[in-house]
Design a protein around this nucleic acid. Sequence first.
DNA 1: CTGGCCATGTCAACAAGGCTGACGTAATTT
DNA 2: AAATTACGTCAGCCTTGTTGACATGGCCAG
Lengths: 182, 182
Amino acid sequence: MAQGPGAIEPRSGQRGGGQRGGGETLLYLTDEQLRKAIEAMFFAYRGFTADPDRILEARGYGRAHHRAIHFIHRAPGTTVNNLLTVLGVTKQSLNRVLRRLIEDGLVDSAVGVHDRRERHLRLTSEGVELERELSDAQRERMRAAFRAAGPEAVAGFRAVLEEMMDPEMRRQYHRLIGPGQK
Amino acid sequence: MAQGPGAIEPRSGQRGGGQRGGGETLLYLTDEQLRKAIEAMFFAYRGFTADPDRILEARGYGRAHHRAIHFIHRAPGTTVNNLLTVLGVTKQSLNRVLRRLIEDGLVDSAVGVHDRRERHLRLTSEGVELERELSDAQRERMRAAFRAAGPEAVAGFRAVLEEMMDPEMRRQYHRLIGPGQK
DNA sequence: CTGGCCATGTCAACAAGGCTGACGTAATTT
DNA sequence: AAATTACGTCAGCCTTGTTGACATGGCCAG
């Protein structure tokens, strides 16, 4: 299955009565509300990726490169296998991307110390530079959205996103953002 | 630019002091917090698309087909050009998907009444059936996430997503979910 | 120390789904 | 009558995903 961007979907069928203003009950979750949320997710993800996409395009990279760069930056010295798990692609697919990044001097691959079969990946200074460029753009949009929506919205946003993950991914996510982190 | 799934990104740099429990200030928006949010978005989107992807795969369809089905269901009788705008792809790309859906009898294309150059698209009963299947799966996950996160979280979630969209997309989104809708 | 498993890289071939560019046709607008 | 619009289609290219097969070198248990 190709990994295009967004699956999406809706379908109508009003059920609970109209709810106004403050006291939402559980009936808040009409199919109608869910449909809107799903479409919001679709369009928001487009926005989420738009800025990095522009930057990457100029260099002839794609999102796959972005993801690799991101997670290598995120966990410097990570192994190939590690990255494979986080990204959820095959090693052949990752390798193609990784090879290019190494050739281009954005990523450095070093033989493991304990286990010399492993390769430890880290960004070169040039890699860090691109990462920052991508990061800044995406973070700026996120920051603006958060600021406009307010702190309470941010908490809710994060809560819902976390609940949307598969348990497996949630575990990965928590391992990434650090133990005990909310 | 290929349309793989997620761009993503982080970068650290703790700034505001630790904030606990209730009263988040604006300093809440540390780079650290933003980084987590970005990764949450990445993993959540994987979850968001996971269920439909499974269903589609069984039929040999991809996300592109899902998106077409979704928006045709959403706006029955829409024109090709309309769909093109909403989906944000080229007509050649859409046509490939659409042709297959029409051949397979999931979508019906009818010559326009006012303007006979236009084609009006709608789902056949078989198309509606698949749409419902996809819809149910995705909606169910969304519903579960909302239930677990609580009503306040839902409002915040929607607010942030909306702020993340490009203004252009936001306009489209509002046109879709209906005028005056929050 | 040897055989088996593991981590990684790589080649080949294929598919989905983006893209551009070029045309063709019919219908509508000017 | 000419220009524009809406749509379809052919051809070719790219990225990024997939399987399958195979090679190398290193670790570890028997």
